[in-house]
Design a protein around this nucleic acid. Structure first.
Lengths: 193, 193
DNA sequence: TCATATACGGAACACTGTTCCGTTTATCAA
DNA sequence: TTGATAAACGGAACAGTGTTCCGTATATGA
């Protein structure tokens, strides 16, 4: 229901190409200039007109949401990659660090998310739907090795890291990383209370 | 250093009057329409031109900050009033409820506060400077009656209520009030762990 | 009463997000 | 290969912000 696959009408090649290039430009500008980057700047960086951008993303917030979903996907998919390349326990730790990095880049979005804009209403669910299974599989694989505690709910862990990342000012990310390290080493003591 | 008192030049009477009326209009519009209320709307409601408004508040955010400080003052001053009218233990409980109500109206501001706008940078300190002594005196008076625990830091309590108030959606304020009630009754058990 | 520093009002400016529409182009059947 | 045409493109124009400017009005103190 999301992307039309029916043979009725295929999306035109140039349209698809422009959608990709706009997403890439938006992602980069959001990262460097913050979520307040201008629609005009994004269109210019993508090398398209604003009309083209608006055809695919009728509201500015649609573009923000699309970039967000893309980045959630990228981070979630890395769980499988890490699981394939590392021992379960290590993969878990590596992904949690990766996730912490992801959260750190979402400072600007946090306020937008709670802004009541209906365009963002679905994002929290998307966030959970993608991340919870990803962490779940890492966590259960790690638990199976016996070296990691088994009594931790994936969603609690996701939230805990999110809350630890709510720091007001500079030097905060260092603090966050120390606390997350603590959390990870806590995980490594199987079943201690 | 904040408001000129020196006899050099007194502020003109009409200017003072307009400042008051603008603040009142802004306070009401922020309450009813949210912090996104328009500068034009505020000026219109106050019955002044935008130029007049900008003379006193050079940035929109200055106006937001001024209203915020006014409301912090009002809430903080109520601590003394309640202390004069009620037994210490009761005054504490009443003020904490009042404070919870204050926090509830600051949803829209929360995102602005963390937005990095330098106009808001001083607000957290102002918040703490006004509220911490207010709660401190209520708390120590209540502790003196022996009916309230003595091992609670005022700032921790302020923050705890603030965090409890971070609810995502509807039905949230009911939940917040239940949790704050719990907190208050917890305070009433002297020195239990 | 008058000179003047101060303050006032609101048109105009700059910069947003968004819409509109004449022009261009990818697609596909003949 | 070639048209016909639906789809997509670009960017000027619109609407709604915050902010500035400046000619006019007025409170103040001598």
């Amino acid at each position: 229901m999301s992307t039309e696959n029916e043979p009725d009408r295929r999306i035109r090649a140039d349209a698809q190409r422009n959608e990709d290039v706009v997403l890439a430009a938006a992602k980069e500008l959001f990262a460097t200039m913050g979520v307040d980057a201008t629609v005009r700047d994004i269109a210019a960086k993508a090398g398209v007109g604003v009309g083209t951008l608006y055809r695919r993303f009728p509201k500015r917030s649609d573009l923000v949401a699309a970039v967000f979903r893309h980045e959630v996907d990228a981070c979630a998919e890395e769980a499988a990659t890490l699981a394939a390349l590392h021992p379960a326990e290590e993969a878990l730790a590596l992904w949690l660090k990766r996730y912490t990095g992801f959260i750190a880049t979402k400072k600007g979005l946090a306020s937008a998310l709670h802004s009541g804009d209906p365009a963002y209403a679905a994002l929290p669910d998307y966030f959970r739907a993608r991340f919870e299974p990803a962490l779940e599989s890492l966590l259960s694989a790690a638990s199976a090795t016996g070296k990691v505690r088994t009594d931790v709910e994936p969603y609690d862990l996701l939230r805990a890291i999110g809350n630890l990342s709510v720091t007001s000012d500079a030097e905060g990310t260092a603090h966050t990383h120390r606390m997350v390290d603590l959390l990870i080493s806590g995980l490594r003591q199987p079943q201690a209370s």
